[in-house]
Amino acid sequence: MNVTPEIVRAEMDHRIERARRSAELGQARAYRRARRALLRNAREHPGSGPAATVNGAPLAA
Rank of each mutant, 00 (worst) to 15 (best):
residue 26 G to V: 04
residue 28 A to K: 15
residue 7 I to S: 04
residue 37 A to I: 11
residue 5 P to S: 00
residue 4 T to A: 01
residue 28 A to H: 09
residue 38 L to G: 12
residue 19 A to S: 06
residue 52 A to Q: 10
residue 21 R to S: 12
residue 2 N to D: 01
residue 9 R to N: 02
residue 21 R to E: 11
residue 7 I to N: 01
residue 59 L to Q: 15
residue 4 T to V: 02
residue 61 A to W: 07
residue 31 Y to Q: 10
residue 60 A to G: 08
residue 36 R to D: 14
residue 57 A to N: 14
residue 11 E to H: 03
residue 36 R to T: 11
residue 14 H to I: 02
residue 48 S to T: 14
residue 14 H to V: 02
residue 9 R to D: 02
residue 59 L to W: 15
residue 26 G to E: 09
residue 33 R to G: 03
residue 6 E to S: 04
residue 19 A to N: 03
residue 54 V to P: 00
residue 28 A to N: 06
residue 38 L to H: 14
residue 16 I to Y: 05
residue 22 S to N: 10
residue 27 Q to G: 14
residue 14 H to W: 07
residue 58 P to S: 11
residue 44 E to I: 11
residue 61 A to P: 11
residue 39 L to W: 13
residue 7 I to E: 00
residue 47 G to C: 03
residue 52 A to H: 05
residue 55 N to L: 15
residue 46 P to K: 05
residue 54 V to W: 11
residue 12 M to L: 10
residue 36 R to W: 09
residue 60 A to M: 08
residue 33 R to Q: 13
residue 55 N to T: 12
residue 54 V to N: 04
residue 53 T to F: 09
residue 11 E to K: 07
residue 51 A to Y: 02
residue 5 P to Q: 01
residue 40 R to D: 15
residue 59 L to F: 15
residue 61 A to F: 08
residue 23 A to T: 05
residue 1 M to P: 01
residue 46 P to H: 05
residue 61 A to K: 09
residue 1 M to V: 07
residue 23 A to V: 08
residue 23 A to S: 07
residue 54 V to M: 08
residue 16 I to D: 02
residue 10 A to W: 01
residue 33 R to V: 06
residue 14 H to F: 15
residue 41 N to I: 06
residue 23 A to E: 09
residue 38 L to A: 15
residue 61 A to L: 09
residue 4 T to L: 01
residue 18 R to C: 08
residue 4 T to H: 00
residue 12 M to H: 05
residue 10 A to G: 01
residue 51 A to V: 10
residue 13 D to V: 03
residue 22 S to K: 13
residue 37 A to C: 08
residue 1 M to Q: 00
residue 30 A to L: 06
residue 36 R to G: 12
residue 45 H to A: 05
residue 31 Y to N: 11
residue 61 A to R: 12
residue 25 L to T: 13
residue 60 A to L: 13
residue 47 G to A: 03
residue 14 H to M: 04
residue 2 N to H: 02
residue 14 H to P: 01
residue 36 R to Y: 10
residue 41 N to S: 12
residue 31 Y to L: 13
residue 25 L to M: 11
residue 40 R to P: 00
residue 56 G to E: 05
residue 61 A to D: 08
residue 44 E to V: 11
residue 60 A to C: 13
residue 21 R to I: 13
residue 33 R to T: 12
residue 48 S to H: 14
residue 46 P to W: 04
residue 35 R to I: 04
residue 19 A to L: 11
residue 30 A to Y: 02
